[in-house]
Nucleic acid binder design. Sequence first.
RNA 1: GGCCCUGUCGUCUAGUGGACUAGGACACCGGCCCUUCAAGCCGGAGACACGGGUUCGAAUCCCGUCAGGGUCACCA
Length: 477
Amino acid sequence: MVRTRFAPSPTGYLHIGGARTALFNYLFAKRNDGKFILRIEDTDLERSKIEYEKEIIQDLLWVGIRWDEGPDIGGNYGPYRQSERLELYNLELKKLVEKGLAYECYCTEEELEVQRKLQLKEKKPPIYDRRCLNLTEKKRKEYINEGRRPSYRFLVPHKTLEYTDLVHGKVTVDCSLISDPIIVKSNGIPTYNFACVVDDYHMGITHVIRGDEHLDNTPRQILIFEALGYKHPFYAHIPMILAPDRTKLSKRHGATSVKELKQLGYVPQALINYISLLGWSPKENREVFSIEEIIQRFDFDHILDHPAVYDLEKMKWFNHYYISNILTNQQVLKYLQELDNNVKNNIDLYGKIIEFEKSRVYSLLEFIDVFKIISNDIVDYDLSNVDANLFSLNIKNTYDDLVNIEFSSVDSIKQSLKRIIQKHNLRTQDLYKPIRFALTNTLEGIELPKLIYLLGKEKFLNRLKNFISFVDSKTKV
RNA sequence: GGCCCUGUCGUCUAGUGGACUAGGACACCGGCCCUUCAAGCCGGAGACACGGGUUCGAAUCCCGUCAGGGUCACCA
């Protein structure tokens, strides 16, 4: 039985890279009828916050990833927060100490820092010199009397390690180049490399799928598995997602968290589809896949081993495609309600807006923009880039006909406008542009007859009049 | 700096020694549609990092150079 896990540390929001790691773990588990587990790695007491755990869970649920076991729903391998499994790590630590494979270290962080800098200065790799490996009992007592508390280090066997990565293939490592890692901090809390191994074993994880940044942790972890006498899981390191400047993705690169994307009007299906294609591709020459189709096709053979650059433009296109072609009007309305509380008070109007705008919109926010245009009258026009006098003139000249536009449907409005254009011998844009501008203060957006229909006769005429007097007042000054 | 990973259009990618005149998608450019802006449809431009090998034949295998990324914490 395949068991995979996503193991975030609750020190921040779920970002695009984390979401993809979670997704790939989920896909692989589902592809093989296995289980997907959510585990919270909160061993960093200072930075971990329960609020972040809640946010991460919310975001994961929003994108549509579901787990079979986790801190919120329990399971047979719990608890699923590392802070609640401290006895287990202690037990495992004891085993290693008894075997002589872990040892106390009384060095302070300051001392270690000094040593590290010295080694770096001499252009040597910063490796712990094992000065605490064979402490005399006397020295040990001395340290304790000084008030020092020991951390525990894992004794790395200096051998050559070979293992197979499901994405990268065979990996060989010279372990004499690896520094003895601290596995339990002086406050008694395990570090990542230890807790991770203990949990992956006791939770029965069969496949560890994670980002390439963990490649160098893998030999350490395998060594600890071996020291404990446990068989290690399979490893698959997936390529990282880079920002357009080809550095690690971070806040300064704009919208990188799932939460931000949601607020920007992206739809979860589009997000899933887009990130699934970052570093992985199905055989077919097509790019729109439902999550079920992706599960069916998911495999390690088509995972790339070089990083992918995150491109918001393509993400936008996916969003457009899903809104226009995949989602029903009802689904769009539902997402809109999640996005803006005000939507539920104007269901009918939003229903119309969705019907009219669905096929051309790139973001959910654009529906809300249309709503705002319709409900908020314009108090101040930006005349700097338009020929305001000509616009005003054209509206004045046709106003008596505009008053008589037939409002029964979008099409009747369109026909009325057509007649007016013919009657006055105008080009379409001579009438469309001024009206659009008078109505919205912009020159682009929703199709004009639809806008006029949504506005209704009263607002339509009021805004025209308002625009004319606005222009008059500006030109008189 | 040591160690590790990686290099196909601007970006995501197809490609597993002959089917490659290197295919698709986003973005870009042009046209059509519409007497508006978009959307849609059609078309165009655009890449095997470089240099050596191996081979009858290399985007594909090997070596080197260059370039990018990751990592060297009592963070995960």
